[in-house]
Every structure is written in C-alpha cells, then in structure tokens.
Design a protein around this nucleic acid. Structure first.
Length: 431
DNA sequence: TCTGGGGTCCTAGGACCC
DNA sequence: TCTGGGGTCCTAGGACCC
C-alpha cells in the first residue's frame, strides 16, 4: 500500500507574516533581513522576480532596493513564531496528531495514508483556504508517495501556476511527471545541495529526472548512503518516516554585535545574556548539559583586521541545568581565550552532551550520587516562573540584561510591531 | 560602515581493545 | 624471510536542512 504524504509550506513565510497585519505591503517588493539587518533571509515574489539572491548582504543591495522600491523589515521572530504556531494548529485539524510532523517554522508534513477515500487535491485546496482565512498566510501543498516527492511536488505547486497551489504526484500521469521532472534542476531536490549538484554535473546528472534514473548503489558509492536514500525516495520507495519532536542534542545561542566590542567586560555581558537564552531552552526541554562551549569572533570579512576567533569547551564533573553553574563555566572559558587588542563582532555559547534531567550520572570518585540541592532547585524554579510571568530578563545572573540597551546590542532598524503577542502592539481598527 | 542563527547526520581516520 | 583479524569509541570535518 503506497503512502500519501503532503508537505504544506508557507509562501515567502517571513514576508507573508509582515503582510498579514500590514496589507498595504501586498504587491510591494519586500525583504526580511537577518539579525542586525545583515543579510536578506526572505524575499517576496516580486523580489524573487527581480533575480535578487537569497543571503545577499543588505548594504550591497541598497542601490537596487531604492531603484525598485524594495521595503526591508528587520526580523520579527516573535511575530513569525506565533503565526507559525497558529498555522500548524490549523493544519493539525486535517490529520490525527501522530500523522503531523512540524518540520520547520513554515513547513509541515501530513500523512494521509490512512485516509484512503480522501480526494487529496480537494483536501489540499481546503487546507489552503482555511489557513488563509484563519491566519492570513498563503500556503502551497505538495503530495507524493514519499517525503522527498512531497517536497518536490510542493516546489512544483509553487513554481507552476497551472497547478493552482496544489500538486498531487500520486494521481498525476506518468508522462506529466516525466516532463515536469526533466524541467527541474537537480539542485531543487531535498538533500542535494550546491556541492553535490556540482559534482553530479560531470556524471551527466543535471535534472531531477536524471537523478531519478540513476542507480542508487552507484550514487551511494559516490555520495554516501544519504544520497542513496534520496534516489530511492525519488523512485517512490519510502525510506524516511514521519518524525516526532525530539529533544535537542545541542543548544547554541550566539549573536553578532550591533557595534564592535573590544573589552572583556562587554564580552562577558554578552556571554551572560546568551547563556540565559541557552539555559531557557535547556530547561524548557527538561534537559541538563554535560559540556559547555564558548567562542568569540573577529570580522572575517575585514581583511585589514587582525583575525582571532578562538573557541573552548569544558566537561562538567556533573551535568547541570543551573544558570549560575553554566554561566560560571562559560565565563571562565571566555576569560581564558580573550586577548585584548582585537575587534570582536560576535560571541556565542553552546550546551552539549545533553541528557534528560531524570538520568543523573554519578561521580565515580564520590560514593553517592550528589543529591540535588532542594533549596537551589526551588530558587531556579522560582526564577523560571518569574521570568515567564513578568518577562524574560526579570531575574537573571549578575549584570545580564540589567543595562536596558548595551552598546553592543542587536540593531533592528525597521522592526514591525509584535501584533499578536504584546497588548500595546495589538492592531486597532478605526471606523 | 554594514556580511545571520540555528540545527542534523554521516564518514573517515586515529586510538584503543582482545 | 615471514608481521592477523576483528572490533569499539571518539573526533573533526563535510554535507545538508531551514
């Protein structure tokens, strides 16, 4: 019994989020920028049509932007995260919970294998209509017998207007599929990146249909088992299952500074703040870290600058989710790698060797497993609750976040309001 | 002047074991 | 003169994803 998997993906997600509450930008060429307004990370259809690439530094694009009237927004992850959650909840109404995989902030797999009678093209249109009406976001739907083919079908639904936003490869004719695949570059296949696409070219593999016709074992010899799986999936043999939410295996928090930093003092402030972010994620998934890492960086794009980008990590004697312990470890690491005289533009912390908090690894050289300090646990829990209730930096470690806007803080020149998550930013309808 | 911030998995090679 | 065969674990680097 062949499977029927749908992939639903929001069109130009970040740009579409900006338009939901600011419809005056409908039809206007939009981009959304990365933190510090650095690079373009999302483009509206109008900007894609101009041929401006993803990932381009904004300052290099400013002339063209002026010329074409492109509007740039700073990243508003509060808004995107909330709209994403709403969108995923709407899609979840179409399948039982175990048949939905939220794959990324703007994509979800839905498994319709068990709903045999359903007309999937009609269901796809129903999903588009409901998401549009309830969240304001435009989505496209791809359907196929494997995840890789569903991804490809979604690509087709987006690029070819004749599919009207829903492409079902499980019912499309063989000839249609052949000609369509022959017209798509192999780079568009899920799992084929820039490197591999380049290496495939001399092998005579240029389009999706070339790759689908390739021998999976030969592809494995050249590119490894991941690529073998990809080829089989293209041929309609399901190798990838829907996955449930797994706890993270590592947690990273890092940011480029709004302005360069020279002193240990300022690096320390940044490390404290980023560790706060990392520990929040850690505690949210009920984990503890066995290894702490930290790094600082100079600007690798400035050739005239002396470069210095050291990193260090340390294994804790006992895994921890205590913000004080973890911050202390990261601070010691940065003090160890810091050298004065460099122009630092970024720092970061990493939590590794994550385990579930319930499984406490004892210390070989102490007779008993160290008992958790009950008062300490209570204090940390109280901090969590205070921060959940009154805002993220209500209680923190040392001077983290005390300064309202440190000089090195992220720059966001054109940030839209948090329309859905802050009372003061709630849209008002005047009549 | 200004160039993001997260993640995952696989593989090869080295160190070590018997 | 001749120098085996089978493993595990860890790490760094590479590839990919959004």
């Amino acid at each position: 019994m062949s499977r029927r998997i749908a992939l639903v993906d929001v069109n130009a997600f970040f740009c579409s989020c900006e338009r939901v509450f600011q419809p005056r930008y409908e039809g206007v060429p939009l981009v959304v920028l990365s933190n510090n307004d650095g690079c373009v990370v999302a483009r509206s259809a109008e900007v894609k049509a101009l041929g401006l690439p993803m990932g381009m530094p904004w300052f290099q694009m400013k002339d063209q932007a002026r010329q074409h009237g492109i509007v740039a927004f700073s990243s508003n992850y509060t808004l995107y995260g909330d709209l994403s959650a709403r969108c995923m909840r709407v899609l979840g109404q179409f399948v039982p919970p175990e048949d939905q995989e939220v794959y990324s902030i703007d994509e979800s797999f839905l498994d319709f294998t068990h709903q045999r009678r359903l007309d999937l093209t009609a269901t796809g249109q129903a999903m588009r209509a409901r998401v549009r009406q309830w969240t304001g976001l435009p989505v496209c739907v791809g359907i196929g017998p494997t995840k890789t083919l569903a991804k490809l079908a979604n690509h087709i639904a987006k690029k070819r207007p004749e599919w009207n936003g829903v492409c079902d490869l499980t019912t499309a004719g063989g000839a249609t599929i052949d000609t369509t695949m022959a017209g798509i570059e192999v780079r568009e296949v899920w799992g084929v990146g820039r490197r591999i696409a380049t290496r495939m070219l001399p092998m005579g593999i240029r389009t999706v249909s070339d790759l689908r016709a390739a021998d999976p074992r030969r592809m494995r010899e050249h590119f490894g088992m991941v690529m073998e799986r990809t080829v089989r999936e293209l041929q309609g043999v399901a190798c990838l299952e829907l996955e449930d939410m797994q706890p993270k295996k590592q947690i990273i928090a890092s940011r480029a500074f709004g302005t360069p930093v020279y002193s240990m003092q300022e690096l320390a402030e940044s490390i404290r703040e980023y560790m706060g972010r990392a520990v929040r994620k850690l505690r949210l998934q009920g984990g503890q870290a066995g290894v702490v890492g930290a790094w600082i960086e100079t600007n690798r794009f400035r050739e005239q600058d002396a470069q210095y980008s050291p990193s260090a990590s340390i294994k804790l004697a006992v895994s921890s989710d205590d913000i004080a312990t973890l911050t202390h470890a990261a601070m010691a690491l940065v003090r160890g790698i810091y050298r004065p005289g460099y122009r630092y533009v970024k720092s970061g912390v990493m939590l590794l060797d994550l385990t579930d908090k319930q499984t406490q690894q004892g210390d070989l050289f102490s007779a008993v497993i160290p008992a958790k300090d009950a008062r300490r646990e209570k204090l940390l829990g109280t901090m969590d609750r205070a921060n959940a209730r009154w805002g993220r930096n209500t209680l923190g470690i040392g001077s983290a976040g005390l300064q309202l806007r440190p000089a090195w803080a992220m720059q966001r020149g054109n940030l839209s309001p948090a329309f859905t998550t802050r009372w003061a930013d709630l849209p008002v309808i005047r009549h």
